[in-house]
Design a protein around this nucleic acid. Sequence first.
DNA 1: TTGTACGCGTTATCAA
DNA 2: TTGATAACGCGTACAA
Lengths: 365, 365
Amino acid sequence: MGRKRTKSGKIRLAEVAELAGVSPITASRFFRNPEALSVAKRTRVESAARELGYVPNLAARALASQRTEVIGVLIPSLTNNVFSDVLRGIYDASEGSRYSIQLSNTRYSILQEEKLLRLFLAQKPAGLIVTGIDQTAESRAMLEAADCPIVQIMEIGPNPVDMMIGFSHYDAARAAIAHLFAQGHRRIGFVGARMDPRVQRRLDGYAAAVKDAGLFDQRLIVTTATPTSVTLGGALFADLLAREPDIDAVFCANDDLALGVLFECRRREIAVPDQIAIVGFNDLEFMASSVPTLTSVRTNRYEMGSTAAAMLIEAIEGKRPEEPVLDLGFTVIERQSSQTQRSAASPRAPEWVPAVQNDSVTNDP
Amino acid sequence: MGRKRTKSGKIRLAEVAELAGVSPITASRFFRNPEALSVAKRTRVESAARELGYVPNLAARALASQRTEVIGVLIPSLTNNVFSDVLRGIYDASEGSRYSIQLSNTRYSILQEEKLLRLFLAQKPAGLIVTGIDQTAESRAMLEAADCPIVQIMEIGPNPVDMMIGFSHYDAARAAIAHLFAQGHRRIGFVGARMDPRVQRRLDGYAAAVKDAGLFDQRLIVTTATPTSVTLGGALFADLLAREPDIDAVFCANDDLALGVLFECRRREIAVPDQIAIVGFNDLEFMASSVPTLTSVRTNRYEMGSTAAAMLIEAIEGKRPEEPVLDLGFTVIERQSSQTQRSAASPRAPEWVPAVQNDSVTNDP
DNA sequence: TTGTACGCGTTATCAA
DNA sequence: TTGATAACGCGTACAA
């Protein structure tokens, strides 16, 4: 008969078992698979655990079971609004589950991602969420060799490692440009920053759309590797204007840039949308309340996170989804900044408030 | 002579030790405190570990040592820009250390915080970072009983549980109001949302400042428990205007609200700062590039996070700071939206670009 | 500076 | 459905 109480003063499984009058392994089963116990023992263990205030020791569990209940998450940025929404979804969906989130920031570096991946995999995570589809060959190999479910988020593409959830940035950009064409715009500029793979694909979508219309012009494209910001949006737009003063619309790779462009227009007394239309990307909250309100492409970021985590947990527990690739789509939210036809109306008129449900071009697959 | 290889095929410490020709405990020491080994053995263990690709099993380590290398972090929001900056600081400072971050979202609920705290403490974290100074009595008791270093972040106040890093939201608000008084404003409104403890203290600072000037008027204060947003800023300002049309300045509890107020002014053709001055709080990036540029109170969020994590790690390793409470101060960044005197100048004139370094009222303690 | 003996709290395995 | 036994891989305590 060993000690009854652990050195640290914490309650162990063995004590719960003793109070309940069962063996430790039975008590152990109660916490992992209560159905496997007879009702009588189940209630006895339950009340014993409650009485003693038992809390399982996760380290011991991980050691004995040779697996952890940790979901690794690799994202490129902690401050970008896009990822904070995704993160919130992931945390919300994991809450209440037995899994905990281990988060790391790749800082938009696929080499950093590779390094972190190696670290994560060494701890045998229960599952993994990684951003995008542009891993290094080495990362790709590690992911494919990993013996846990994996979800790639933010975009969709061919050859998923395992599961995938996102939308087509290429199609979304094309839809935004189609909207601008429909409004009568012809010389449409592109403003992009950071130029990570997803922004690059938005640029590709833009380029394809204007090429199809025979309106492609390399000089209408202004990009930089610098991280995005509102101020940068203004500066890039200034560059664009200096080079091509006759543009009639700007498609911004994200909403911060779009807001910067709007401010720059105001600074230069350029009327929006009369002289220049603006379209952003992501549909952050402020886009609906700026003056004029700003057209953007809405993406389902929170759902991307929460669904990714939910899918992953299901897969960990053996219930793999029928379709491993989930397209969450996007919606072009048409607002004042791109509505040329009615631009003579007063910005204060109530009829200007966009009825999102009716005006929108949705691509919900 | 046991097995030489673990079932899972992973390399164990014992194998490294064998290859190096030392006992397992010596190899163990190498990974935790290399200085304690003779140079000869140190190099032998090092090359053996490298050759075998050894990765320590954290679960076994945690079980044997009765402690983890996990830093728990409790913050009220994942999406609020303020906290994403803090988080980035925390993650950056923990990177490269042996500690990993376990993050949880209290959603601005101190009851949720209490629940999460209980969960965290059960896992014996190496250290803890918690937000603010308004824990429940129960939480407070748990924190005080915890046998690990703790840092309270975001604000400073009396009776730290352990360490504390932040600034006085009360003083910061007073400084903002003092600036508005200095610019000649008399009827200064307050717009606040969420009304978490820190926003409440900004309101207290505002109220004290206007009372001191004999200018307090309850009707100038508009608040709501609703989460903050740009749109909400516009709506709250509209309420304020409807009630008190003769205000000449608005102090917003954060920058999103301030931007919303700016847009609402534009919608109503109210000149800023000529008719109404606007001051925000936090100095998010867009404040410097809006039209007009917006005055705000700069806070050192990233440093708050990185310093908190760095202090905590030092404390975990036995090097407690001499002064447990660190005031990171704030700076009133004066921009166009509150500069009454020169408001007749064109917003496009270059002299309008604020020279932050010269114009600012700093409170760096 | 290095090593021995043992414990950390739980779960896998297999038998009953 | 339940239980006995033996890991799981490493660190603590103490001795050498």
